[in-house]
Amino acid sequence: MTAHAPRRRLSRIIHGSPAVISSTRQIPQLLPRELYEAHLTGLFTSRPETIRLFASLTMARTHPGVATRADAAENLGLPADLGRRCAAAAASSQTASPMAVLSAVSAAARDLDRRDYRAPEGRVRALASSDAWFSTRARRYRPRTRTTTQPLALQWLWTHVAHAHPGTAPEASPTRARRFATTLTAEQQQALRQVLDEPTPPRNPETS
């Protein structure tokens, strides 16, 4: 009973609070790591990835019509059950007061860049249907890289640029993707980021 009390109190505070951001499309599936570190470090004992998701769910939860964490997850393009499980994990590890948590989440929301996070998510999904963009960059920035590495590049874009949940990435392989991320130079990272600003590539014939 005690473990659920902080969650209930936070839910009551949220119910009477205005939305912390104007649209749920402006909320990433996971709060960017630098904003987590700036605003939420020390408020929970759960893993940072859990609290980054919880923060985004809380932002969505402040919107009218988003009544539960499951609703919040679906608004962000995530499975409803993931929202419920994340909320339970965060509630059991919360060390700060509900008001302190909401204040920290609100401050993090103010620091978001107000872009439409669903747009880069869609862009990464579209890139999964073509390998030309990856082959071109691999030849220039990472010679001898195999085309089988493309799913790892997609997951890097998914988690580091779109700030989306690693478990929902196209062809997700979180453990391999984390290893791949440690091998990217700053120049290679910038080359990958630029892919999302280019026109959508044509689909491979076999994926049409």
Rank of each mutant, 00 (worst) to 15 (best):
H4F: 13
R7G: 10
R8D: 12
R9T: 11
L10Y: 06
L10A: 15
I13K: 05
I13L: 15
H15K: 13
G16T: 03
S17P: 00
S22V: 08
S23T: 01
S23W: 00
T24E: 05
Q26E: 13
P28I: 00
Q29S: 06
L31N: 02
L35K: 07
Y36H: 14
Y36L: 00
E37M: 07
H39F: 11
H39I: 04
L40K: 01
L40D: 07
L40E: 06
T41V: 04
G42N: 06
T45M: 12
S46E: 12
R47S: 15
R47C: 10
P48W: 09
E49A: 15
F54A: 10
A55P: 08
S56R: 05
S56G: 04
L57M: 05
T58M: 11
M59G: 07
A60F: 06
R61W: 01
R61G: 01
T62F: 02
H63V: 01
A70T: 09
A70E: 12
A73Y: 07
N75S: 15
G77H: 02
G77P: 05
G77R: 05
P79C: 07
A80N: 10
D81I: 14
D81V: 15
L82R: 10
R84N: 10
A88Q: 14
A89F: 08
A89H: 12
A89K: 14
A89L: 15
A91K: 03
S92F: 11
T95Y: 05
A96N: 05
A104Y: 00
V105F: 03
